[in-house]
Protein backbone atom coordinates (compact mmCIF):
# COMPACT_ATOMS: atom_id res chain seq x y z
CA UNK A 1 0.00 0.00 0.00
CA UNK A 2 1.59 3.32 -0.99
CA UNK A 3 1.72 5.72 1.91
CA UNK A 4 1.62 9.46 2.07
CA UNK A 5 5.37 9.77 2.52
CA UNK A 6 6.08 8.29 -0.90
CA UNK A 7 9.20 9.85 -2.40
CA UNK A 8 8.89 12.50 -5.04
CA UNK A 9 11.85 13.04 -7.34
CA UNK A 10 14.50 13.67 -4.70
CA UNK A 11 15.85 17.19 -4.50
CA UNK A 12 19.46 16.10 -4.17
CA UNK A 13 19.14 14.32 -7.46
CA UNK A 14 17.90 17.40 -9.25
CA UNK A 15 20.65 19.45 -7.70
CA UNK A 16 23.31 16.96 -8.55
CA UNK A 17 25.87 18.24 -10.97
CA UNK A 18 25.80 15.11 -13.11
CA UNK A 19 23.31 15.56 -15.94
CA UNK A 20 20.38 13.18 -15.99
CA UNK A 21 21.36 11.56 -19.27
CA UNK A 22 24.77 10.63 -17.86
CA UNK A 23 23.10 9.15 -14.78
CA UNK A 24 20.78 6.97 -16.83
CA UNK A 25 23.66 5.93 -19.09
CA UNK A 26 25.53 4.88 -15.97
CA UNK A 27 22.52 2.96 -14.63
CA UNK A 28 22.13 1.07 -17.88
CA UNK A 29 25.86 0.47 -18.07
CA UNK A 30 25.84 -1.05 -14.60
CA UNK A 31 22.88 -3.29 -15.40
CA UNK A 32 24.42 -4.59 -18.61
CA UNK A 33 27.77 -5.21 -17.00
CA UNK A 34 26.06 -6.99 -14.12
CA UNK A 35 24.17 -9.13 -16.57
CA UNK A 36 27.40 -10.10 -18.37
CA UNK A 37 29.06 -11.14 -15.14
CA UNK A 38 26.04 -12.77 -13.50
CA UNK A 39 25.90 -15.16 -16.46
CA UNK A 40 28.73 -17.26 -17.85
CA UNK A 41 28.99 -15.02 -20.96
CA UNK A 42 31.74 -12.69 -19.80
CA UNK A 43 33.84 -15.43 -18.22
CA UNK A 44 33.56 -17.72 -21.24
CA UNK A 45 34.50 -14.94 -23.64
CA UNK A 46 37.46 -13.77 -21.58
CA UNK A 47 38.82 -17.28 -21.04
CA UNK A 48 38.45 -18.24 -24.70
CA UNK A 49 40.05 -14.98 -25.76
CA UNK A 50 43.02 -15.61 -23.47
CA UNK A 51 43.41 -19.19 -24.67
CA UNK A 52 43.27 -18.16 -28.32
CA UNK A 53 45.49 -15.11 -28.10
CA UNK A 54 48.13 -16.79 -25.97
CA UNK A 55 47.88 -20.07 -27.86
CA UNK A 56 48.32 -18.38 -31.21
CA UNK A 57 51.19 -16.21 -29.93
CA UNK A 58 53.19 -19.19 -28.75
CA UNK A 59 52.45 -21.48 -31.72
CA UNK A 60 51.80 -19.85 -35.09
CA UNK A 61 53.01 -16.50 -33.80
CA UNK A 62 56.44 -18.00 -32.91
CA UNK A 63 56.66 -15.61 -30.00
CA UNK A 64 59.69 -17.40 -28.51
CA UNK A 65 61.32 -18.66 -31.70
CA UNK A 66 61.36 -15.28 -33.41
CA UNK A 67 63.56 -13.94 -30.62
CA UNK A 68 62.17 -10.46 -31.19
CA UNK A 69 61.23 -8.31 -28.20
CA UNK A 70 58.05 -7.04 -29.78
CA UNK A 71 54.42 -8.07 -29.72
CA UNK A 72 53.44 -6.73 -33.14
CA UNK A 73 53.50 -9.99 -35.12
CA UNK A 74 53.30 -12.78 -32.59
CA UNK A 75 50.54 -11.28 -30.47
CA UNK A 76 48.58 -8.34 -31.90
CA UNK A 77 48.50 -9.73 -35.43
CA UNK A 78 45.94 -12.34 -34.35
CA UNK A 79 43.62 -9.95 -32.55
CA UNK A 80 41.42 -8.83 -35.44
CA UNK A 81 40.90 -12.49 -36.37
CA UNK A 82 39.88 -13.39 -32.86
CA UNK A 83 37.72 -10.31 -32.41
CA UNK A 84 35.78 -10.90 -35.59
CA UNK A 85 34.47 -14.10 -33.98
CA UNK A 86 34.24 -13.13 -30.33
CA UNK A 87 33.20 -9.46 -30.38
CA UNK A 88 29.85 -10.31 -32.02
CA UNK A 89 29.32 -12.96 -29.35
CA UNK A 90 29.53 -10.25 -26.70
CA UNK A 91 27.37 -7.76 -28.56
CA UNK A 92 24.71 -9.99 -30.08
CA UNK A 93 22.35 -9.88 -27.14
CA UNK A 94 22.45 -6.13 -26.64
CA UNK A 95 19.26 -5.27 -28.53
CA UNK A 96 18.11 -8.66 -29.84
CA UNK A 97 17.38 -9.81 -26.31
CA UNK A 98 15.48 -6.65 -25.44
CA UNK A 99 13.31 -7.07 -28.49
CA UNK A 100 12.68 -10.76 -27.95
CA UNK A 101 11.78 -10.40 -24.25
CA UNK A 102 9.79 -7.23 -24.80
CA UNK A 103 11.91 -5.39 -22.24
CA UNK A 104 12.51 -2.79 -24.92
CA UNK A 105 9.00 -1.64 -24.09
CA UNK A 106 10.06 -1.02 -20.51
CA UNK A 107 13.19 0.76 -21.62
CA UNK A 108 11.20 2.81 -24.11
CA UNK A 109 8.79 4.02 -21.44
CA UNK A 110 11.40 4.80 -18.80
CA UNK A 111 12.50 8.42 -18.79
CA UNK A 112 15.72 7.60 -20.65
CA UNK A 113 16.66 8.51 -24.17
CA UNK A 114 17.54 5.81 -26.68
CA UNK A 115 20.93 7.48 -26.93
CA UNK A 116 21.71 6.95 -23.25
CA UNK A 117 20.69 3.31 -23.53
CA UNK A 118 22.85 2.76 -26.61
CA UNK A 119 25.90 4.38 -25.03
CA UNK A 120 25.42 2.49 -21.76
CA UNK A 121 25.18 -0.85 -23.53
CA UNK A 122 28.11 -0.10 -25.80
CA UNK A 123 30.33 0.88 -22.90
CA UNK A 124 29.38 -2.26 -20.97
CA UNK A 125 30.37 -4.51 -23.88
CA UNK A 126 33.57 -2.50 -24.37
CA UNK A 127 34.39 -2.97 -20.69
CA UNK A 128 34.32 -6.76 -21.11
CA UNK A 129 37.01 -6.39 -23.76
CA UNK A 130 39.00 -3.95 -21.68
CA UNK A 131 39.09 -6.59 -18.95
CA UNK A 132 39.97 -9.32 -21.45
CA UNK A 133 42.83 -7.28 -22.89
CA UNK A 134 44.06 -6.35 -19.42
CA UNK A 135 44.21 -10.06 -18.57
CA UNK A 136 46.89 -10.54 -21.24
CA UNK A 137 49.40 -8.58 -19.11
CA UNK A 138 51.65 -11.63 -18.48
CA UNK A 139 52.82 -11.52 -22.08
CA UNK A 140 53.92 -7.91 -21.60
CA UNK A 141 55.83 -8.92 -18.48
CA UNK A 142 57.37 -11.84 -20.34
CA UNK A 143 58.58 -9.78 -23.26
CA UNK A 144 60.04 -7.23 -20.82
CA UNK A 145 61.76 -9.98 -18.90
CA UNK A 146 63.21 -11.63 -22.00
CA UNK A 147 64.21 -8.53 -23.89
CA UNK A 148 63.97 -4.79 -24.07
CA UNK A 149 60.83 -3.93 -26.02
CA UNK A 150 59.47 -0.47 -26.75
CA UNK A 151 56.60 -0.33 -24.27
CA UNK A 152 55.13 2.71 -26.01
CA UNK A 153 54.62 0.61 -29.12
CA UNK A 154 53.05 -2.13 -27.03
CA UNK A 155 50.63 0.36 -25.47
CA UNK A 156 49.80 1.68 -28.90
CA UNK A 157 49.17 -1.90 -30.03
CA UNK A 158 46.76 -2.39 -27.14
CA UNK A 159 44.95 0.82 -28.07
CA UNK A 160 44.66 -0.33 -31.68
CA UNK A 161 43.42 -3.70 -30.56
CA UNK A 162 40.81 -2.16 -28.30
CA UNK A 163 39.63 0.20 -31.04
CA UNK A 164 39.17 -2.72 -33.47
CA UNK A 165 37.13 -4.41 -30.78
CA UNK A 166 34.99 -1.34 -30.14
CA UNK A 167 34.31 -1.00 -33.86
CA UNK A 168 33.19 -4.62 -34.06
CA UNK A 169 30.96 -4.22 -31.02
CA UNK A 170 29.38 -1.14 -32.57
CA UNK A 171 28.77 -3.03 -35.82
CA UNK A 172 27.25 -5.94 -33.89
CA UNK A 173 25.02 -3.53 -32.01
CA UNK A 174 23.73 -2.12 -35.28
CA UNK A 175 22.92 -5.63 -36.49
CA UNK A 176 21.30 -6.58 -33.19
CA UNK A 177 18.95 -3.62 -33.48
CA UNK A 178 17.70 -5.11 -36.76
CA UNK A 179 16.77 -8.55 -35.49
CA UNK A 180 15.27 -10.18 -32.43
CA UNK A 181 17.13 -13.38 -33.19
CA UNK A 182 20.54 -13.63 -31.54
CA UNK A 183 21.77 -16.35 -33.90
CA UNK A 184 20.96 -14.29 -36.98
CA UNK A 185 22.66 -11.33 -35.34
CA UNK A 186 25.76 -13.40 -34.58
CA UNK A 187 26.08 -14.80 -38.09
CA UNK A 188 25.51 -11.49 -39.85
CA UNK A 189 27.87 -9.56 -37.58
CA UNK A 190 30.62 -12.17 -37.84
CA UNK A 191 30.29 -11.97 -41.60
CA UNK A 192 30.49 -8.17 -41.65
CA UNK A 193 33.46 -8.16 -39.28
CA UNK A 194 35.12 -10.89 -41.33
CA UNK A 195 34.77 -8.73 -44.44
CA UNK A 196 36.25 -5.75 -42.60
CA UNK A 197 39.24 -7.84 -41.51
CA UNK A 198 39.85 -9.71 -44.72
CA UNK A 199 39.40 -6.91 -47.23
CA UNK A 200 42.46 -5.01 -46.08
CA UNK A 201 44.52 -8.09 -45.22
CA UNK A 202 47.71 -8.07 -47.28
CA UNK A 203 47.29 -11.20 -49.43
CA UNK A 204 43.67 -10.29 -50.17
CA UNK A 205 44.54 -6.66 -50.82
CA UNK A 206 47.26 -7.78 -53.22
CA UNK A 207 44.89 -10.11 -55.01
CA UNK A 208 42.44 -7.24 -55.34
CA UNK A 209 45.23 -5.00 -56.57
CA UNK A 210 46.00 -7.46 -59.36
CA UNK A 211 42.53 -6.71 -60.76
CA UNK A 212 43.54 -3.09 -60.85
CA UNK A 213 46.43 -3.48 -63.28
CA UNK A 214 47.02 -0.56 -65.59
CA UNK A 215 45.87 -1.13 -69.18
CA UNK A 216 48.33 -2.61 -71.66
CA UNK A 217 50.74 -0.24 -73.39
CA UNK A 218 49.03 -0.42 -76.77
CA UNK A 219 45.70 0.48 -75.18
CA UNK A 220 47.26 3.51 -73.48
CA UNK A 221 48.71 4.63 -76.77
CA UNK A 222 45.62 3.88 -78.81
CA UNK A 223 43.00 6.44 -79.61
CA UNK A 224 39.35 5.91 -80.28
CA UNK A 225 36.28 5.20 -78.23
CA UNK A 226 37.06 1.58 -77.36
CA UNK A 227 40.53 2.34 -75.95
CA UNK A 228 39.04 5.22 -73.94
CA UNK A 229 36.40 2.90 -72.45
CA UNK A 230 39.06 0.34 -71.51
CA UNK A 231 41.11 3.05 -69.82
CA UNK A 232 38.07 4.22 -67.85
CA UNK A 233 37.32 0.66 -66.83
CA UNK A 234 40.82 0.21 -65.46
CA UNK A 235 40.66 3.50 -63.60
CA UNK A 236 37.29 2.61 -62.13
CA UNK A 237 38.48 -0.78 -60.91
CA UNK A 238 41.61 0.73 -59.38
CA UNK A 239 39.53 3.27 -57.49
CA UNK A 240 37.04 0.68 -56.31
CA UNK A 241 39.85 -1.52 -55.00
CA UNK A 242 41.31 1.46 -53.17
CA UNK A 243 37.97 2.35 -51.61
CA UNK A 244 37.35 -1.28 -50.62
CA UNK A 245 40.74 -1.71 -48.97
CA UNK A 246 40.38 1.53 -47.07
CA UNK A 247 37.18 0.14 -45.53
CA UNK A 248 39.22 -2.70 -44.12
CA UNK A 249 40.29 -2.62 -40.53
CA UNK A 250 43.82 -3.76 -41.30
CA UNK A 251 45.33 -0.54 -42.59
CA UNK A 252 44.33 1.35 -39.50
CA UNK A 253 45.15 -1.38 -37.04
CA UNK A 254 48.62 -2.01 -38.52
CA UNK A 255 49.82 1.56 -38.13
CA UNK A 256 48.76 1.71 -34.47
CA UNK A 257 50.39 -1.66 -34.00
CA UNK A 258 53.65 -0.17 -35.22
CA UNK A 259 53.30 2.61 -32.66
CA UNK A 260 52.11 5.16 -35.16
CA UNK A 261 49.28 7.50 -34.16
CA UNK A 262 47.78 8.78 -37.38
CA UNK A 263 44.77 11.06 -37.36
CA UNK A 264 43.21 9.17 -40.26
CA UNK A 265 43.15 5.94 -38.24
CA UNK A 266 41.51 7.54 -35.24
CA UNK A 267 39.00 9.17 -37.57
CA UNK A 268 38.30 5.80 -39.17
CA UNK A 269 37.70 4.04 -35.85
CA UNK A 270 35.77 6.99 -34.47
CA UNK A 271 33.51 7.30 -37.47
CA UNK A 272 32.88 3.54 -37.74
CA UNK A 273 31.76 3.49 -34.12
CA UNK A 274 29.76 6.69 -34.37
CA UNK A 275 27.98 5.72 -37.59
CA UNK A 276 27.08 2.31 -36.19
CA UNK A 277 25.70 3.79 -32.99
CA UNK A 278 23.71 6.46 -34.85
CA UNK A 279 22.43 3.75 -37.18
CA UNK A 280 21.34 1.71 -34.16
CA UNK A 281 19.42 4.67 -32.84
CA UNK A 282 17.80 5.29 -36.24
CA UNK A 283 16.76 1.65 -36.61
CA UNK A 284 15.31 1.46 -33.11
CA UNK A 285 13.22 4.59 -33.66
CA UNK A 286 12.13 3.48 -37.12
CA UNK A 287 10.94 0.16 -35.71
CA UNK A 288 8.51 1.92 -33.39
CA UNK A 289 6.85 4.18 -35.90
Amino acid sequence: MPDKTAPQLPIHYLQSTIPQSAMSTLTIYKRELGSYFSQPTAYAIIVIFLLLSMGLAFTFGSFIKAGDASLEWPFFFWHPWIFMLLAPAVGMKLWSDEQRNGTIELLGTFPVTTRSAIIGKFLAAATIWLVALACTFPIVLTVNYLGDPDNGVILSGYIGSFLVCCSFIAITMLVSACTRDQVVCLIVSVFVCFLAVVIGYDPVARALDSFATPPAADVIAATGLWAQLVRWWHQGVAQMVEVATSFGVWNHFASLNRGLFRLQDLVWFGSTILISLLGTSAILSAKRS
Partner: peptide, 17 residues
Protein backbone atom coordinates in the same frame (compact mmCIF):
# COMPACT_ATOMS: atom_id res chain seq x y z
CA UNK B 1 16.64 -1.29 -7.78
CA UNK B 2 17.58 -0.84 -11.42
CA UNK B 3 14.14 0.53 -12.26
CA UNK B 4 14.26 2.89 -9.28
CA UNK B 5 17.71 4.13 -10.29
CA UNK B 6 16.61 4.75 -13.84
CA UNK B 7 13.66 6.70 -12.47
CA UNK B 8 16.18 9.00 -10.82
CA UNK B 9 15.81 7.67 -7.28
CA UNK B 10 18.91 7.17 -5.19
CA UNK B 11 20.04 6.56 -1.64
CA UNK B 12 17.30 6.28 0.97
CA UNK B 13 14.58 7.37 -1.43
CA UNK B 14 15.47 4.42 -3.66
CA UNK B 15 15.62 2.01 -0.76
CA UNK B 16 12.25 2.99 0.65
CA UNK B 17 10.63 3.06 -2.80
Amino acid sequence: RFCAAIRGLSGNAKKSA
